[in-house]
Computed example of a mutant assay.
Amino acid sequence: MDYGQLKEEIIEYSKQIGIDKIGFAASDPFIEMKNLLMRQEALGYQSGFEHKNIDERTHPELIFEEPRSIIAIALAYPSKMTNPPRGKRGERRGIFCRASWGIDYHILVREKLEQLAAYIKEKVSEARCKLMVDTGELVDRAVAERAGIGWSGKNCSIITPEFGSYVYLGEMITNLPFEPDEPLHDQCGECTKCLEACPTGALVGPGQLNAQRCIAFLTQTKGFLPDEFREEIGNRLYGCDTCQTVCPKNKGIDNRFHPKMEPDPETAKPLLKPLLQLSNREFKEKFGKMAGSWRGKKPIQRNAILALAHFKEEQAVDDLIKVLQEDVRPEIRGTAAWSLGKIGGEKARTALLTARVHEKNSDVQQEIQKGLHLLNEQ
Rank of each mutant, 00 (worst) to 15 (best):
M132K: 06
T245I: 15
K15R: 15
P29Q: 07
N210L: 03
L116G: 14
D55W: 04
F178N: 08
V124H: 04
G201C: 10
D264E: 15
A76R: 04
P206M: 06
P330K: 15
L138G: 05
L320Y: 09
L225T: 05
L271C: 14
E313D: 09
T242K: 12
M33I: 08
I173L: 04
P274K: 15
T192A: 07
S100C: 13
K342W: 04
K284E: 14
G205K: 12
E367S: 05
M1K: 08
I103N: 12
A211P: 05
I71C: 09
P259T: 07
K298V: 14
L62E: 09
I149D: 06
E9Q: 14
V143D: 02
D327W: 03
H373S: 12
I332T: 13
G18C: 04
E162A: 03
S14M: 02
D241F: 01
Y238V: 11
S152P: 00
E126R: 02
P84M: 07
A355L: 01
R92A: 13
G252C: 06
P183Q: 11
K15P: 03
N303A: 07
I10A: 05
R329I: 14
K154E: 04
Q212E: 13
E232Y: 12
I332H: 07
K121M: 12
S47D: 00
D186K: 06
C240R: 06
I321E: 10
E66V: 08
E190M: 09
Y238E: 13
C191V: 01
K193D: 13
G292W: 02
E50D: 06
L184F: 02
P330Y: 11
A74D: 08
D186T: 07
K289R: 13
M81D: 01
